[in-house]
Structures are given as C-alpha cells and as structure tokens.
Design a protein around this nucleic acid. Structure first.
Length: 430
RNA sequence: GGAGGGGUUCCCGAGUGGUCAAAGGGAACAGACUGUAAAUCUGUCGGCGUAGCCUUCGGAGGUUCAAAUCCUCCCCCCUCCA
C-alpha cells in the first residue's frame, strides 16, 4: 500500500494537488510540514501532522519538520489568532531543541538512511532576508489579486470583517511560500503537507515555485480534526494535552484518549495509531458487539500512550485508572501502603498542607479553596458539595461544615479528593 | 482628513436612568441515566457570604438620590469617502 492509499483509508486526506501521487511513485520525495515553536512541547493537535510525516517516512520518503521561527512570529490570518510576538532567539532555539527531542520519538533523524528526517528552522533563512530583497525576489512574482483570492484573506476583508488585517498578516502566505521555495531549491523538497486550513498558504508556495523556478511542487492537506459534538479537539478543562509529561502527566494523557466518544474513537484510532486496517476493523466489530467494554478507546489510549510515553507509563496509568474508576472503596483505599499509593497516583495533581493544621482539623471549604487550590473559590466548593459532586477518599461528602483532620489520612499522609466523577486531587500532609 | 457604526461578564450577543451581577445562546462544570460514551433532562456558572455587602459593562472625569445606560475628554476597532 503506498503513502496515498495508506492515508486515504485512514481518512487523512482532505485535498491534494493533481500529480502528487505520481510524483511520490516516481522517486523518493521530500515533504515538509510546519510547526510553530511557540512552546517547548508539542501538543496533540500537532500529532496529526507528525503522523503524516511518520507515514511518509515509513513509505520510504524523506520527511522534513520545519520549525516556524520566522512565520510563528507573524501569525496566520486564517486562524483567529492574534498577531504574535517575536520570540527571542534563545527561547526559539530552546523550543526547537525540545521539539526535536519529541519528534525523535516518531521520526528517524539519526540513521544514515537516505530518507532520515531533518529539522529545519525558517528563522535561519528568513532572518537575514532584507525587506528590499523580499519584495524584489518574492513579491514581484505573486499578484495582490492572487493573494486576495485566498479564503484566509477574503474572510478578513469586506463588510463582515470583524477585524482588519495588517500588512504583516497579509504577507504571511508569501513568507510561508518563501519557505517552500527555499526548501525546494535547497533540499529538493517538492511537497508541503498540513491541515486543510493551510491549503491556500501551501498553494501560494507551489505557485511561487512554478513562476520563479518553473518547478513542479505539490500540496497535500488532511482534514482538521474535530469532535463529533463540534467541540474543539485536544482541549480539556485544564487546557491543551501536551506530549511533555511535565505538562500533561501520562495518567491524564491516557485518560484523555480513553474518554474519547464512540463516534470519534474509530476516526482517531486510524489517525493516531499505526494499527493496520484489519486490526482496526476487528476492534470496530468488537466495539459494536460490546460497546460498554470500549475496546476502541482502550486500544487507542494504549497505542498513543505507549508511543508518546512508554509502556511502563501506560501500565501505571491503567493501574491508577482501575483503582480510581473501578470498585475501589474507602476501605480498599485505606489499605494501600504509602508506596503503592504514590505509584498509583503519580500524575494525579497533588497539593500540600501543613500537618500541624490538620491536627487541629481544617474545614473542608478552607482546605480546598484557601489552603490548597483544588477549587478556585469557596463558593465553588459549596456549590459542588450542594450538587453532590464532592467525594473524600471515595466517599461522598455532603456536609459543608465537615472538618478534615488527621484521621482522614490514607497511609497517614494523603487525602484523596474527587470532584465529580473524573477529577482527582491528592492533598498531602507534610 | 470627512461621514457612519462599534467596544458589555470565557465567547457570541441583548440591554439606552432605577425592578441589572446585567436577557438569550454557546462553551464549561456538577447531578440523574449509562459504558469513565453519545443524546437527553436538571442544577451551577464575578467574589465574600444568612440577610446583605464588595468588584464588573474600553479608560478617566462629571451630572444625578440613583448610570452599562446621560454629559465631557481620551484610547481602540470596523465600513465607506478623500
């Protein structure tokens, strides 16, 4: 199965330029995707493009990951994102290094294979590009008329525009096109991939290559990942799901995938895992036969957690989940020794409190909203208790005036706080 | 530079002197139902709290017993004309 066929059955192709498949069959081809280095970790929104590159490398082609040090400071007008601030070079390099380490889990950067992955940063070739050079060498080749026809630009002009668009944002497609042109010339890169929102930007690049170099370059986009209920993919109450375990613990990471809705599970497992069509078909059948066992979500969570973290972290996450969501009771919790407790709950957000305070007893509302930041306000603690949404050590708490004392400690050191069904916090006496 | 239209609580968006912590929708959170799913229904959704109080409607002043609402100045955004 070739690259295009692979992506097709996985539902990862939204659009591509005619001739793309032929090009890929003709020779080993280089392709790139762009990543904004706005943070020092990738989040799961990036994972789609990373998987495209991975399939690309598996298919024998050469993937390039472009860190957008230059473009990242402009901001793409097609998103609603505001214009960005310039990252200083130190931060930029730091982020670049961190991203590369994460990418190395997916792509082979190190081997001597001709299709080893490469990381490039457009800051390196854009930083010394003078304005005059730019408008002469690049700007001349693309008409404003052409640029204005792009949806990303059109939506920002005219009467229904909420915001105007600065010249900087307008020029974004040219800057991105310049990247493509640069990679085309320097690295013989003939394909740019990205989300479907990037189509306009990518084709400005292929157009530039055609006009300036009489070259043939290609574009391939994947659908934007959505949720069946229309919500944003990859966001939870606590924000982005990051690949860095320090930002999103493996437990939370695992839980994210496990909680994916049925309607999304099949779609996601095709995109975010390398499981074969047969394996997935099998799982889908199992899911239909016994939906409550959620084989799709479980396998999806396993595969992605193992890929991003490792098998050990995955197993810990499963164990913690079984205790938290299984039939654990106050009694079984109380039996856990300190070691086990810590191992199981590693990754569950932990707050500390002075043991001396607990000796005297701390009102629950104080404990959760003042002594620790489990809740942002006292009112919210009250509301949650009133709504029957708070549990302490797996037992529902209904008394707003309850005082927590040392007798509530598990293993003489911990209190397990549960907000609703899925949110756990640990308070540790120190 | 001219004319017009705007800036409201996380988002969209009502509100033009008191009954406004501010309609409605969305998002979010919790409860019920379930399968840690979806859909549905219910509740909550500025802060502290019994009442009640405090902070909020671009910013700063002012009028008034009382202002998101009226006046003055300023800042920002959009459209059209030049």
């Amino acid at each position: 199965m070739n690259f295009i066929e692979e992506l097709t059955w996985r539902g990862m192709i939204h659009d591509m330029k005619p001739g793309t498949e032929e090009q890929l069959q003709k020779e080993m081809t280089s392709a790139y995707i762009g990543i904004d280095p706005t943070a020092d970790s990738l989040h799961i929104g990036h994972l789609v493009s990373v998987m495209m590159l991975k399939h690309f490398q598996i298919a024998g082609h050469k993937p390039l990951a472009l860190v957008g040090g230059a473009t990242g400071m402009i901001g793409d007008p097609s998103g609603k994102s505001l214009e960005r601030n310039l990252l200083d070079e130190k931060t930029l390099r730091h982020n670049q290094e961190c991203l590369k380490k994460q990418l190395a889990k997916f792509l082979d950067f190190e081997s001597d294979a001709p299709n080893a992955a490469e990381l490039v940063n457009n800051y390196d070739w854009m930083k010394d590009f003078s304005f005059l050079d730019f408008i002469r060498d690049i700007g001349k080749h693309i008409t404003v008329n052409y640029m204005m026809a792009k949806d990303s630009v059109k939506s920002r002009l005219g009467e229904d525009a909420k915001m105007g668009m600065s010249f900087t944002e307008f020029s974004y497609q040219l800057v991105q096109g310049t990247d493509f042109l640069h990679l085309y010339k320097e690295k013989n890169c003939k394909l740019q991939m990205g989300g479907s929102d990037q189509w306009g930007n990518i084709t400005t690049g292929t157009e530039l290559i055609r006009r300036k170099e009489s070259g043939d370059a290609f574009a391939l986009t994947c659908p934007l990942i959505t949720k069946a209920d229309g919500g944003k993919f990859g966001k939870t109450e606590s924000g982005n799901i990051w690949l860095d375990p320090k930002l999103t613990t493996p437990y939370k990471f695992y839980q994210f995938w496990l909680n994916v809705s049925d309607a999304d599970a099949e779609k996601y497992i095709k995109i975010f895992t390398l499981l074969s069509k047969q394996e997935i078909d099998e799982l889908v059948k199992e899911q239909e036969a016994a939906p409550h066992l959620r084989p799709l979500q479980k396998r999806l969570a396993k595969e992605v957690t193992c890929m991003v973290h490792d098998e050990q972290e995955y197993e810990k996450a499963v164990e913690a989940s079984q205790i938290l969501f299984g039939k654990a009771t106050t009694e079984s919790l109380a039996k856990l020794d300190k070691e086990t407790f810590l191992a199981v709950f590693e990754g569950v957000p932990t707050f500390e409190i002075d043991r001396a305070k607990l000796d005297a007893g701390v009102p629950i509302i104080e404990l959760l909203a003042a002594e620790t930041a489990v809740f942002p306000s006292k009112g919210e603690v009250r509301r949650t208790i009133k709504g029957n949404g708070l549990s302490l050590n797996k037992a529902k708490l209904t008394d707003q005036d309850y005082s927590v004392s040392t007798s509530d400690l598990i293993s003489e050191a911990y209190v397990l706080v549960q907000k609703g069904k899925k949110n756990y916090y640990i308070i540790e006496a120190v």
